[in-house]
Write a protein that binds this DNA or RNA. Sequence first.
DNA 1: GTTAGATTTGACAATTATTGTCAAGTAAAT
DNA 2: ATTTACTTGACAATAATTGTCAAATCTAAC
Lengths: 100, 100
Amino acid sequence: MKTTGEIIREKREKKGLLLRHVSAQLDIDTAILSKIERGERKATREQITKLADILELDKETLLIQYLSEKILYEIQDEDLGIQALKVAEKTIKYGVTKNK
Amino acid sequence: MKTTGEIIREKREKKGLLLRHVSAQLDIDTAILSKIERGERKATREQITKLADILELDKETLLIQYLSEKILYEIQDEDLGIQALKVAEKTIKYGVTKNK
DNA sequence: GTTAGATTTGACAATTATTGTCAAGTAAAT
DNA sequence: ATTTACTTGACAATAATTGTCAAATCTAAC
């Protein structure tokens, strides 16, 4: 499966847009967008939805990929990560309102 | 399923320990431990393993619960949370080394 | 092989989130 | 009404994230 960054870079190039064009619309330096595309930095949630608009990408698909990477980031190099994911899934399906 | 905080509080009380006893061992104020137990604050990973030692709780079980809460925290009030969880699960199972 | 434009890199600054302290506030037990 | 355990909330300290900037690299065209 393609990473968020890969999806963004591919679509940007397909549209013939430069980092400078897109980063201007996002109101950030090209450096950050470059890093986001290469997976060196995480985007913010807001940037993801803006990018979907700018690049005409399916917002849901992009968000799902983005969120899944955030999740994976949380449990990176945790042996119990998979098990934690499963517990999280069960909990969310159960219909928990959650703390605070 | 019991929350991390509930597990900790129940075991602490069963052992007859006061917040002050346990928080001293964790080297934090009782206020924080109180909040952790009531789910108002998240513990750090280190605090979780220390708590497992102090309260003689199964470290793996506690960590899984703790991590799953961290995951759920990331996707709280995200409509696409469940889908993101599933993508994350597939990705992790696939055996990805991940970015950076 | 030099220039020009695009991207990348890394040092560091700004901002935001997390983790903590402290002091005052409840509540229950004596 | 004191004492003890715990809770609450304002705020301080620390740490993580997000950003800028300037210089470096890369590529393609002259």
